[in-house]
Design a binder for these strands. Structure first.
Lengths: 99, 99
DNA sequence: TTATTATATCTGCATTTCTAGATATGTCAA
DNA sequence: TTGACATATCTAGAAATGCAGATATAATAA
């Protein structure tokens, strides 16, 4: 559930960081330069910034992906996550018009 | 936290019911006719409709009030709750512009 | 005053979620 | 192939939440 996914402070923090990936994370050296997945950040970079265990962060990211808040793409051994801004817009509209 | 308050199905259902209080609840016989708290529904009416224990519903309502989703007013031995629509608008704007 | 009613708070147990360590899977390099 | 690395999944204990019964508080009625 989307509100469940947003009910954890660290998860919201990750979403915030991913609004400005270049400013908040180091360069993603293994993301192919010709990729159309710009703004994607690998699990390891996010894990490092949170200071939490790798399994925790991996779970957080998967949870937010299931909720539609993130999308992911794998390149080689790296999985890159980035925001799915469409979902945020839809959520805002839903709250404004349906709730 | 507001997302925490919204992460429970029953609580969201109550908010939904309170969008159309007249249609979803019986007449509030003890709410003074000259009150400016129109649309307010007493805890007992809400409790009855959910089928949950009185203590549970009372807690839910207090939780949503703390989150700003509901406002309340007491008349005699009855506490009436209604939606705080301003908060919903602000939340939608926050998600659209800040998240 | 006492009794009744509505709501809030307290208590405890069951369930869920959080968190992290350990392990498994998948990919790349040698 | 083997070894190293990134990520996902599994497992288990800790913490938070859900829920309801019991009790407390506050207002009303007799």
């Amino acid at each position: 559930m989307i509100f469940k996914a947003l009910s954890n402070e660290t998860r919201v923090q990750i979403l915030e960081w991913l609004k400005k990936p270049d400013a908040n994370f180091g360069p993603q050296l293994y993301l192919p330069p010709d990729s159309d997945f710009k703004g994607g950040i690998c699990v390891g970079s996010i894990q490092e910034k949170t200071g939490l265990a790798q399994s925790v962060v991996s779970n957080y990211l998967l949870l937010m992906k299931k909720a539609g808040l993130l999308e992911s793409r794998r390149y080689g051994q790296w999985t890159y996550y980035r925001r799915n801004d469409e979902t945020f817009m839809q959520l805002a509209d839903f709250i404004k018009n349906e709730m």
